[in-house]
Amino acid sequence: MKEIMAIVRMKKTGATKRALIEAGVAGFTAVKAMGRGKLLPHDEINVPCKEKLMGMAATDVIDGEESEEQVVAFLDDKTMFPRRLFTILAYDEDVPRIVEAIIKANRTERGAGDGKIFVTPVADAVRVRTGESGDAAIW
């Protein structure tokens, strides 16, 4: 018995739910969470992102220097971004399939910030309605 914790983009919640159903897993628990990733030393992700944000800056409201400061502060890897944290219980043998489905549904072109998946062991589970425990309680 395993617990799969997947942290995904808010916008990808629907796609993840569909992918889970296609993978044969209907049940999940999801909460809103804020998160940030590791420090990015590689500029090939940050530089285009900075250019794009600078292009969106309203220069008539604040001057360019100030918006550049804000964009740099936004991209310094310490900003917390909204994410959705899915928790899914699964049988051991289904884990690779579910992980594969979540990765497929959530991968984007951006190269960073698509999320993480963690697989952790679960000692036991109990279904409240019937009281059955162990593998029988998962689905």
């Binding site: 395993k2 995904v8 884990v95 992980v99 979540i102 990765i103 959530n106 991968r107 984007t108 951006r110 190269g111 960073a112 910030g113 698509d114 999320g115 993480k116 998946i117 963690f118 697989v119 952790t120 062991p121």
Partner: peptide, 13 residues
């Protein structure tokens, strides 16, 4: 603190 068996980075797949 709990064990994690596997971790995946989605952007790297």
């Amino acid at each position: 603190i709990s064990p994690v068996e596997e971790a995946y980075t989605i952007s790297k797949g």
